[in-house]
Design a protein around this nucleic acid. Structure first.
Lengths: 217, 217, 217, 217
DNA sequence: GATGAATGAGGCTTCATTCAT
DNA sequence: CATGAATGAAGCCTCATTCAT
C-alpha cells in the first residue's frame, strides 16, 4: 500500500533509443523522480496553480526539457491519479475481501483511506482543487469510474452491516460513504505533513466519531 | 438641476463625497446582478478557472465593461467571501448565544452550517478550490481570521459538552470541528442544487452520524 | 501675460442651446475651470499619464461628463498649448519690437521665458513629456510652427548682437537659442511650485551665466 | 567608457542559482540585441509610449516571446538606466579625481555629459519623458540617488572653483549644475543622431557659453 | 449637464507547448 | 537529454469615448 507501484508501466514510447539495457531503466528512474517533484508542487498548490516552469525549476532544468519525459502536463497528473486510484481501489477491495464482519470491514476501509492521505497528498489535493476543471476532459473519465467502484464497495459493506443489525438502519449508505470520504480527504489541507503519528491519531479520532458519535454513553 | 456654483470650491482631498444616497445605493442593482452571475460560475468552476470573459459573457457584455463595476476579479470573490463569513459567523454566534445545552447548540451549529450550503455555494467552492491560491494574498487574510473565530465557537461548545458529560471526553474539540466543517463543505460538490429538501435531509443524515455514530444501539 | 486670455474662443459649438444670455458665459466659465484642473494634473504627470478619469475625479464628476465640455482629451491639451504659444510668441515679439539693443532684448527674451514657467507649467511639462507622442498628430503641427517662429525672433536678435559686436561672433545663434530655451523649460521639473521669488531668482541666476559665463573676471 | 556590467540582471534571492556559466552568459547575445532594439524605440518615443508589441515587432517576434528574456517591460528600461548611471557616475568621478584645477574639471564634466548623449539616448529620453511616471516606483529609487551623487560631484567642483577665485562667487552651485545638466540632456531631442562631429561641436559650443557667456569681451 | 453603462481597442503578462541545435 | 528561443492563445486590466436616460 505504501509505494506507487508502477502505474502506467505499460505505456510505451517514453524510453526511446535503446542503446543499452540500462538506459530505459535510467530514463524511467529520472521520470519517476520528476513525477515526485511535480507531486510535491501539486500537493502544495494544486494542478492548475502549478506551472510546468515551476516543475522544471524544481528539477533544475528548463520547462521545455520536461517534454522529453512527458507529452503534457496532464500526463503527469494522470500518472498520479492513476496510481492513487489503483492503490486505493486495491486496498478497498482487500478490506472487503478479508471476509470479516461489516464493522471490522468498515474500520479497515477507513484506515485504508487515511493511510492513503500521506503518500497521495498530490492526487487528493488535485481531486479537491482541480476536479471541476479536469472532469470535463475525456482523459480523466476513469476518475469518476474509479470513485463509483470504490463507493460500491463501501455501500455494499454498509448495507451488510445494516442487514446484520450492526449498523443503524436509518442511514443512507451512499451519503454515509461520501461523508466519510470527504472528511478524510479534506484533512489533506490542514493535517501535518510528514508526521506519521499525526495521521494515525487523526484516523483513530475520526473513526471514533464515525462509529459511535460524539455523544457520551 | 439646482445650482452648481460651489463645485469643488473646497477641494476636499481627492475623492468626492457626493451622491447623497449612501453606499447602499452604490452597490447598485446592476452590480448585484453581476455578482450573482459570477457566483454561479464560481460555484461551478471555482475562482481561478472562471475567467473575467466567462463572467462578462454570462452578462452579455465585454470583459472590460466589468471594470466599470469592480476594480478587479478579486473584488468580486471578496464580496462573496465577505458575505459568507459575515452570515456564517453571525449564525454560529447566534447558535451559541441561544443559551441551550451543548447538544442542542452543536445541533444548531450543524444546521446552520448546512443552511449556508445552498446560498453560499460559490464561496464554499472557492474556499475548497482556490484557498491555496488566495491565502497568499494579504487581501484575504480575513478568511483565516474568520475561520479561527468560528472554530473558537465550536470548540467552546464541544468543551462545554465534555464538561457536562454530554459529549465524549476523549474527543479533540478542534479535530472534531474540522471534521464536521469539512464534511459539510465537501457536500457542495455533489449535493443537489436548488432542492431544499435535499439539503435538509442531508443535514439530518450527517447530524445523525455525528451525534451517535453508525453503530446500532 | 498673466491670464489665459481666450484661446480657442473662436471655436463654436461648445456652448450650445442658448436659453439665455448668461448660459454661454456660465458654460464657458465651467469649461475654463475644468481646463485649469486638467492643467494641474498635466503639470504633475504629463498628458499621457493623466487619464480623463483623473480629470473628472478632480472635478467631482464622471469621466463621460467631461465630453459635454470637450470633444476629446486632446482638445484640452490643445487649449493649453495654444494659450502657451499665443502668449509666448506675443511676449517674444514684444521684446524684440521694443527696439532696444541686442543685449537688452536678449535679457528681455530670457525674462519672458522664465515668466511663462509658472503660469504655463502644464504646457511646458507636456512639451517635454509628451511631445514625441503628440508631434505625429496633424492637430499639433502648429506647435512646430510656433517654435520655429519664436526661434526666428531669438536668432535675429542674437545675429544683431553679433553684428554690433555685443555678442561673441563664434556662437551659433540657433544652438544658443535652444540651449537657453531648454535650460529654462527643464527647470519646470524641479523648480519650486508657486513661489514667485524662486522663479525670479532662477531667472537672474541663469541669465548671469548666459550673459557672462561662470568664469570670474 | 567602461562596460555595461550586468547590473540587475540576475535578480537573485527568488530563483535558483544554477547555470554555472555565470550571469554574463545569461545576458546573452539575444538579450543584448533585444535591449538595443528596445533602446532605439525608447529613444524615439520614450518608455510609456513604446509598447511591448512595438519592441517585439522590431525584433520580428511576438510580444509574449519577450518574456523569455525579460520579466517585465520595466526590467528593460531598468537595464538601460542602470547602465547610464553606472557609466555617467564613473565618468564624473574620474573627471573629479583627475586632480586638475576646477576649470579643467568642469570642462571635463561637461564633455563627459555630452559624450554620454549619443550612447545613452534611450536612458536620457526616458529620464525626460517618463521620470514622472517611474519616480513613483520603488524599483527606480536608485535613479534619484544616482542623480544626487552626480550632483554632489559637480557642486564640489564648482565650490572649489569659487574658493580659487576661478569661478564667480555669486553662483549657486546647485542651480548651475542643473542648468548645465538639463541643457545637455534636452539636446537629445533635437541633436543629430549618429553624427559624432555634431556632438563634439555641440559640446564645444555650449561649453563656450557656460564658461564665458554670450557677451563679447 | 450629469449619470450609468457600455464599447472596443489595446496594454502587459503568463503559460503550455514545440523544435532546431 | 537539455537548451534557447519561439509560438499562440489566453488572462487580467485600462482607457478614451459614446450614448440613452
Amino acid at each position: 500500500m505504501a509505494r506507487v507501484t508502477t502505474a502506467n508501466s505499460g505505456r510505451p514510447g517514453t524510453a526511446r533509443r535503446r542503446r543499452g539495457r540500462g538506459d530505459a531503466a535510467l530514463a524511467s528512474r529520472r521520470r519517476e523522480h520528476l513525477v515526485r517533484l511535480a507531486a510535491g508542487l501539486f500537493a502544495e498548490k494544486g494542478f492548475q496553480a502549478t506551472t510546468v516552469r515551476d516543475i522544471a525549476k524544481e528539477a533544475g532544468i528548463l520547462s521545455g526539457s520536461l517534454y522529453h519525459h512527458f507529452d503534457s502536463k496532464e500526463s503527469i497528473v494522470d500518472e498520479l491519479l492513476t496510481a492513487y486510484f489503483a492503490e486505493t481501489t486495491a486496498a478497498a477491495r482487500a478490506a472487503v475481501e478479508a471476509g470479516e464482519d461489516a464493522g471490522a470491514t468498515l474500520t479497515a476501509l477507513v484506515h485504508a483511506a487515511f493511510a492513503s492521505l500521506e503518500p497521495h497528498r498530490a492526487a487528493i489535493t488535485v481531486l479537491q482543487n482541480d476536479w471541476n476543471h479536469l472532469r470535463s476532459t475525456a482523459r480523466f473519465a476513469y476518475v469518476a469510474r474509479s470513485e463509483a467502484e470504490i463507493e460500491a464497495l463501501w455501500v455494499e459493506t454498509i448495507r451488510r452491516g445494516q442487514r446484520d443489525g450492526q449498523f443503524r438502519a436509518d442511514l443512507d449508505p451512499e451519503l454515509t460513504h461520501r461523508m466519510i470520504r470527504d472528511a478524510v480527504r479534506a484533512a489533506v489541507r490542514w493535517s501535518g505533513r510528514g508526521e506519521r503519528t499525526d495521521a494515525a491519531r487523526l484516523a483513530e479520532h475520526h473513526l471514533g466519531i464515525i462509529l459511535d458519535g460524539v455523544h457520551a454513553r
